[in-house]
């Protein structure tokens, strides 16, 4: 447990440092509205990061999560708004498809990176069919939920804390989560004990699908409309978020709390760069540099911990 605590220390510190820098530069951000603006877009990114984390947990990687979130956003903005029952059915089928993919990947020993790459075409194709041009509208209850103004703490922060707690209970505390992490650690020994690795992988992918659906719904709640390419960058952001949060690509070593913090850090990095009036030309590059700096810091901390 202590090693996990140490693993979380650095993502938390980098988030606080970045937050401190933003406050120092723009003290007015230190308010209810300011915080809400800073972290607003982090909710769908955090949900997508948790989805990615669930796949990385079983030693795979999901290159389709961005287009999948875009697909779910399009379903939310069209079917879920116009004919809620049909919308729910479609989203349910999408989750089932995710679970089936997980089973297929394990059953035939397929490379997840390529299967999800292929699926990314499928999801974006389906999204383009639904919404050839940006449009649709958000179901009222989702907008109401996403734009709610609870007292004292902004909605975005409450949502992220709830997500981190749910993720922690699901992945780190529950027996299912332990089993799933064991699949990432050593799938062969899990199957020798008598568990079906196919079923476990299907569960992990299915759960990833659920969080992907939630991410798409949250995104539409914020933007009030959708288009097929709305979440393309989520694929890379989610991978970066998992790694920033202390997760690793192999061995089932992941941290849901860390993943949420990683997603928050990436969102905040974007806002921070706007605050320092960095030329838009350099914004992407600076995000890359922030990623590199955090990872370099992690290396230094680990070296010290080993000593």
């Amino acid at each position: 447990m202590r090693r996990m605590d140490l693993r979380l220390l650095l993502p938390t510190l980098s988030l606080l440092l970045l937050l401190g820098a933003v406050f120092w530069m723009q003290p007015r951000a230190m308010s209810y509205t300011g915080l809400n603006l800073l972290f607003n877009l982090s909710v769908p990114i955090a949900l997508a990061t948790i989805a990615q984390m669930l796949v990385i947990m079983v030693d795979d990687i999901d290159l389709s999560i961005g287009t999948f979130v875009g697909f779910c956003a399009c379903v939310t903005a069209t079917f879920l708004h116009d004919t809620p029952l049909l919308g729910v059915l479609i989203l349910g089928a999408a989750v089932a498809a995710y679970a089936a993919l997980g089973a297929l990947i394990e059953l035939r020993g397929l490379p997840a990176i390529v299967v999800t790459l292929g699926m990314s075409f499928v999801w974006s194709g389906l999204a383009v069919l639904m919404l050839p041009a940006p449009g649709g509208s958000s179901p009222a209850w989702i907008t109401a939920l996403m734009k709610a103004r609870p007292p004292l703490v902004p909605m975005a922060i409450i949502a992220c804390v709830v997500l981190a707690v749910v993720g922690h209970l699901l992945v780190t505390r529950s027996s299912l989560g332990t089993l799933l992490r064991a699949v990432g650690g050593n799938a062969r020994s899990v199957s020798r004990v008598g568990w079906s690795v196919v079923r476990l992988k299907a569960t992990a992918y299915g759960l990833a699908g659920v969080f992907g659906v939630l991410s798409g719904m949250a995104l539409v709640g914020l933007t009030t409309s959708a288009d097929a390419n709305i979440a393309l960058r989520y694929t890379l952001l989610s991978i970066a978020g998992v790694i920033l949060g202390g997760g690793e690509f192999t061995g089932g070593r992941v941290s849901p709390v860390g993943a949420v913090i990683g997603a928050l850090t990436l969102t905040l990095a974007g806002s921070f760069l706007t605050f320092i009036r960095l030329s838009p030309d350099w914004q992407i590059g600076a995000q890359g540099v922030i990623l590199i700096v955090v990872l370099a810091a992690r290396l230094l901390v680990r070296r010290r911990a080993v000593r």
């Binding site: 397929l110 490379p111 292929g118 699926m119 075409f121 499928v122 194709g125 383009v128 069919l129």
Partner: peptide
């Protein structure tokens, strides 16, 4: 159309890998 084209491309990639 673009949508069907994307879907078929994806399905074909997955089918080939399988």
């Amino acid at each position: 159309g673009a949508g069907v084209r994307l879907i078929l491309t994806g399905v074909i990639i997955v089918a080939i890998v399988v």
